[in-house]
Amino acid sequence: MRQDILTLDNVCADIAQYHILHDINLNIPKGGVHVLLGRNGAGKTTTLRTIMGVLHAHSGSIKFDGQDITKYHSSDIAQMGVAYVPENMGIFGGLTVEENLRLAANKGKFDPVRLKRIYTLFPAIEKFWDKAAWSLSGGQKQMLAIARAIIEPRKLILIDEPTKGLAPSIIDNMIEAFHEFAKETTILLVEQNFHFASSLGETVNVVEDGKIIHSGDMKEFAQDKDLQTRLLSLSLDQHQ
């Protein structure tokens, strides 16, 4: 049994006056890709934002790598080795591709080996190196956001819907890339594209109304159509 890198224990979080997360319990094992599924508005993004410290849990505890980070500031959590790729990509449009990556590199210096790997995975990064990030296409921006998350070794990467709005060919490349990343880090992935999620995920957690309603093996979940329909209330075939 692998050790958990991330544990959420009865975490509750609010956005303004709205209670979004209600006693979320989540265990993410070290290494591999772990998927968080759920319908729109179920609380998936809020869960990632709460782990990252962008939102603060008002009760419960969040443990990362054995340390309680519930009250930590998001910048401290990032420094502990957690990278966050938000749904809107979170890149800085006014900065160049290089500057965006340099921000995430340790002391502003690139590891040449990692940089070369990023160039191989995402050739657009090298091609548009000096260009302002706002001038990139949606897919290229997403690649930049992911490249920024892996420019340094991270213990945990939180990724929110990386395939949203991307062409199928790019998604296939991204599946390959994620398999590569998962060899050395842990990825917690929020994803609506079930084909993408099931191709990568080892475990799955389903969120509904701010609670985890199912946790288990991804392969088993992918084969159980009844369970998928019941938990996600939609025909996943249309997403495959």
Binding site: Y84, G90, L95, A104
Partner: peptide
Amino acid sequence: SPLGTVLKAVRENETRAEAIGYRV
């Protein structure tokens, strides 16, 4: 310098700058 890049990032989006490890 790298500090200048961080400053520009802070100006553009504080939350994003914090999420990549910079205490605004």
